[in-house]
Design a protein around this nucleic acid. Structure first.
Lengths: 355, 355
DNA sequence: CTGAAAGCGCTAACAG
DNA sequence: CTGTTAGCGCTTTCAG
């Protein structure tokens, strides 16, 4: 059906070589022939077959992208950035969504390699223990991670400093006067980011003179979250007055669950998320969160990868700045302890946290 | 670098044909040879080059997807559905985001055709006047639209009935006692959906005995929206007590703008969106909206396309059911007119709307 | 400036 | 069962 370069050549009464030269602007062709070729192309509606070209050139001009989810705006935004950069450079995008499943991760990378993508951009569950990544390395296929923050192995990555950010959250909450913190996180196994944020959060909580925070790992099912929250606040003991959620989507669910448990945010419980998805600013209370520059991260990942494909320096680890966006969902700790007890607090350490 | 089928054949001391047969499960090979081939594959880390295969088979087992945006959850959700279906069938996904730009639309389709995708799934600005679509048709490349609802031309589509849905919104609002309706819409030029929703909304508004609604077309810039809202409600005349927004993202922005204009939702103004993005249920007030089954739409589009590629019936137009999700953002019209005036209302028609 | 020809990696007759 | 071979559509020497 579709016309080939051969058809064009025949119709223009030249060799396929000339057509190729004209089409690709490589080498010159006599103006007279050029005109005939152009007409033939026009008449035949010829469009070069990228598969044939790829086979010959050993380059598909396609780059693969592997992300855990696309319904999470964080990944959607990064993808938008990637798309922008990639397309501007004339590359195409092969996308796979893994749904946080490691098996999908592996098969996706395999499929993409089979399709001979020129490079990959991906977010994996665990960059420190990822067979797919090792495979890419062995095969010499360039890649750069986004959001992932490898601990041991040195791998090209674009992310924020999750540990530091988690720490800032702890300090902020402490400065608000909260004495009992908690963290609600999605699967640690499926997210090195969550682990890093937790590590920073716990460390700084303790460093701030508070006791270690309660950590709840939840499945991403609304019912589950509600149960966890209910369980947490049913106990009459020392329950957290502030909750750090490992990502914004989770924070939003947690706020909903809290509300259904008749707990007011932020009056009774403060909530801080992570990511800075735009939906957070439209909620009420508006979401306090750690903002990462998702779109920019995607753009940067793409441009580093493309740069490398064009012979520039290899992609390297880049930590982009994050920042805390103060919304209404986090505020002063409720109910300062009765005056007589208050004297027992530790003013020195308190001053520290307020930094 | 990467091993080819030839390398495997050499190493296993068989012909490339045998390797191909074993790898693809087409034809038999002597168990003895099979074993040698398998070892060779293992040792060489051989992975069939899909480009070579595609060239020979005239099929890339890739399908192209073209959407206006990926940051809008509607498209992200549909894409999730497409991804699911596509991957289960062993296909790959080539994605392009057009950013609502018709020029990008055309070049994306061109690039995808060049890459020889086996079929396309797309949402375009105007399915009734779309050069890309005509080009696909001419080239005989199968495609199915999502969200688009072509008026004239017959094109395979998965969507909801936007006209009917727009009408329902009008009737619902009328039944709530609103007498003055308005619609805020994104670019009509970039969205046939918006046009269809508007058509249904206007028709039913009038059919309900109300005067034609105010229509405001806005750019998708927060500042712009705020200005439009402010302008609309500055006039002391008969301003709408209910606003239908052509999509949820817009509705969320409108609610924000309304709030900044000191208008309460829904006490002063009711707002209804369209799409049913999950963020809407987490807002407060929760968003009233027309829910479309986005993920299912994506899934269905993909399965129809794949079915067609496998020789089943051609994709056809499918209207999936939508439904109104009543949230808190829309309610009874404010301030029933003073009693003496109320008698002037038209009870008969009112009864009609309440149906 | 131009054409002939080789070959990218793979599949599928076809002949043994 | 197995190997040989002819392309799929394209780019690119290499001669002319």
């Amino acid at each position: 059906m579709a016309a080939t370069i051969k058809d064009v050549a025949r119709r223009a009464k030249v060799s396929v070589a000339s057509v190729s030269r004209l089409v690709n602007g490589t080498g010159n062709v006599r103006p007279k022939s050029a005109e005939r070729i152009r007409r033939a192309i026009e008449e035949l509606g010829f469009r070069p077959n990228a598969v044939g070209r790829s086979l010959k050139m050993a380059s598909t001009r396609a780059i693969g992208v592997v992300v855990p989810s696309i319904s999470n705006p964080v990944f959607a935004d990064a993808l938008a950035g990637i798309n922008e950069e990639i397309r501007a450079a004339g590359y195409n995008l092969m996308l796979t969504v893994t749904d946080y499943d490691a098996a999908n991760e592996a098969s996706a990378v395999g499929a993409l390699m089979g399709h001979q993508v020129d490079g990959l951009i991906l977010t994996v569950a665990d960059p420190d223990d990822c067979a797919s990544l090792d495979m890419l390395e062995r095969a010499g296929v360039p890649y750069v991670l986004v959001y992932n923050q490898p601990g041991g192995k040195s791998r090209a990555t674009i992310s924020v400093d999750n540990v530091a950010a988690g720490g800032e959250v702890a300090r902020t909450l402490a400065a608000f006067g909260h004495r009992s913190l908690g963290m609600i996180s999605g699967s640690f196994e499926a997210s090195d980011r969550a682990r890093a944020r937790q590590a920073g959060f716990v460390d700084e909580t303790v460093a701030s003179g508070l006791h270690a925070p309660v950590i709840c790992e939840v499945d991403f099912i609304d019912g589950d979250i509600e149960q966890v929250i209910a369980g947490l606040y049913r106990s009459d003991g020392k329950t957290p007055t502030a909750l750090f959620c490992s990502n914004d989507l989770l924070a939003i669910s947690v706020i909903g669950a809290l509300r259904r448990c008749n707990l007011k945010v932020p009056e009774d419980v403060s909530v801080i998320g992570f990511d800075g998805i735009s939906a957070g600013t439209h909620l009420s209370p508006t979401l306090t969160t750690v903002v990462q520059p998702s779109r920019e991260m995607g753009r940067l990942a793409a441009s580093q990868l493309l740069g490398h494909l064009n012979g520039q320096e290899a992609p390297h680890t880049t930590l982009l700045p994050h920042h805390l966006r103060l919304g209404e969902s986090a505020g002063q700790a409720p109910q300062p302890v009765p005056a007589d007890l208050q004297d027992n607090s530790q003013p020195v350490q308190k001053r520290n946290l307020a930094r």
